[in-house]
Design a binder for these strands. Structure first.
Lengths: 328, 328
DNA sequence: GTTGGAAATGTTTGCGTAAACATGTGTGCC
DNA sequence: GGCACACATGTTTACGCAAACATTTCCAAC
């Protein structure tokens, strides 16, 4: 900056004024400064800026993996929204979700140049990590049950699951099987709980639950274990549903002729499955948007109380569900 | 820091030494300082650190979208590798790939606190943006043809495509159709070129090319246009291949009985398609790893020359390809 | 011609950190 | 006992920027 000032024949303060577009600089001076900036390839040092202002204009995102589920779409929405608000996004991936790793991520985040943190992570791991999170850091949690400690933005998992199960019951199926996500996942548990609730409310038998790890392969394995009496399955995400479709195909049971299948997420590919998958649409973009909003609100206005902001879901009916016509 | 120093009854310099784990601090003093740090919830200000050191320990990643193809896996690998090296990742998403937006991203990146930039973006858009990128910023490009200006890390697209097409020819198919990605994509063009080359070398007819936009839906559309004479298709990515499988299913042609299909990417779901997809495996993690390595090398040792670092691919044979048995 | 005041520009200062240098404080050796 | 030397700790300074305050310049009104 000093070099620019010297070349333009002005003080560094004037350079600063020009750089920030402040008023009170005469046009001719401004021109000279801009010319000098160009000549020297000057760009402001954001570290010094941050130091001066006490803010980084950066948000941190702690997450497990981008490959899984809709995480990547949420992150993308967060990044887009943050960019629109003049913030950058810093990613802290936690490879294997051990407690140590999560603690490490929080510690690292504490040392990072961020004004706030969005946590996309299962909360039981968060418990232990809470201690490590500096109290001054603002936090918003996605998809978790931290409602008592932090603001939470979440998809309305329970409602989506209810819609899915009711849809199958309305088609006449005597009951609905369920292939859940990992037991450690709060989202998986809520979907499973809603499934159970609807069945019990309707006075239907509650079949044994299946489990997968969100991957198509695990859905395939779980699908192979479905009994012949099963005519309707609610699968906790689309990728596992893909595996279930494959399993049913190998078992010689047609979808939706013999078995109806509903997924969850409405990923882009779901409409191209064989058959196109009936599934629960999640608005990942909206979740990301609200996260950023809530976090910025918190940063500017101080910590808002905990609480949960639910983003609605809706069922998308495609070709994988059909009326009940008896056990094949 | 000053508060910590006062509480511990030492100078701020000693606090600094403790914080950085430097030698030359007696155990008892160190204990006191650490205690004071804990009590005050002290955490070092990274802006000041960056200002002092002239480095940010942050890498920027410019990209289109995380939802597409293997981008998210590459980004994840980049983030993981960077974290291992003590660097954080800042994401700069470019929503719609217009030239303006790309320029904007580069400008923003120039103002951001990053030591280097990894660009995951088509290079024809990069051309215009090059001007805007400050010369002092280190750059590594992924999956593009910037080989003459920047170091490039890339999957060996051409070799992967060759393996795919040769596999189909070896199965006895008279020729191989191709459904390519968007024409603007360099990766898509290289895969298409390799497909054409292999057919021409083998003296086979080169059918008209199909096109999609990488999405399953576009693959479905392209798949519907395949002529009855087609017995083998090489699809430029797995998601489009999923759409092709659906199209062939609707057309009443069996895979692999009537038509063999090969994809590209080997995404996790591909093994659960109906039938499980034969595809070209890309090592996204390795690409991410090498990117970070190359960039850090550049940062520490000065600009390495341009050039391309190719990550090998290999064919994974599953259930979607079978020997030729005449036109169904 | 002087004076007042607004506008343009310059100077000082501090943000939090760590390198470089300066100052203690003790230990061992002659 | 005195001296040298190693080691622990304190003081000064600069990193790049911008707020706060200080100064200069210029014009208008009398």
């Amino acid at each position: 900056m000093a070099d620019v000032a010297k070349l333009a024949g002005v003080s560094s303060q004037t350079v600063s004024r020009v750089a920030n577009g402040q008023a009170g600089v005469v046009e001719s001076t401004r021109e000279q400064v801009l010319a000098a900036m160009r000549e020297l390839g000057y760009r402001p040092n954001s570290a010094a800026r941050s130091l001066r202002y006490g803010r980084f204009n950066t948000l941190g995102v702690i997450l497990f993996g981008l490959s899984s589920t809709g995480n990547s779409r949420t992150v993308e929405a967060i990044a887009t929204q943050a960019a629109a608000e003049g913030y950058a996004i810093t990613l802290i991936p936690v490879g294997v979700p051990t407690q140590d790793n999560v603690l490490g991520a929080f510690t690292r985040m504490g040392e990072l140049a961020v004004d706030g943190v969005i946590v996309i992570i299962e909360v039981h791991l968060l418990d232990a990590a809470t201690v490590a999170l500096p109290p001054a850091v603002h936090v918003v949690v996605v998809d978790s049950d931290a409602g008592e400690r932090y603001p939470v933005v979440d998809t309305d998992q329970a409602d989506g699951a209810r819609q899915a199960v009711r849809h199958l019951l309305e088609l006449g199926h005597p009951t609905v099987w369920h292939i859940a996500g990992p037991a450690e996942s709060y989202a998986a548990e809520r979907r499973a709980q809603a499934w159970r609730d609807v069945l019990e409310e309707a006075g239907r038998p509650v079949p044994a639950i299946g489990r997968g790890d969100w991957s198509a392969e695990s859905g395939y394995q779980a699908g192979l274990s479905l009994p012949p009496s099963c005519t309707a399955v609610f699968v906790a995400n689309d990728q596992m549903a893909l595996g279930v479709l494959r399993a049913l195909n190998e078992l010689g049971r047609s979808v939706p002729g013999d078995v109806s299948v509903v997924g969850f997420d409405d990923i882009a590919d779901a409409s191209s499955y064989l058959p196109p998958l009936t599934t629960v649409h999640q608005d990942f973009a909206e979740v990301g948007r609200r996260c950023v909003e809530a976090l910025l609100e918190q940063i500017s206005a101080g910590p808002g109380g905990p609480g949960t902001d639910l983003v609605p879901t809706h069922l998308v009916v495609r070709g994988s569900t059909a009326p009940y016509r008896g056990v094949g």
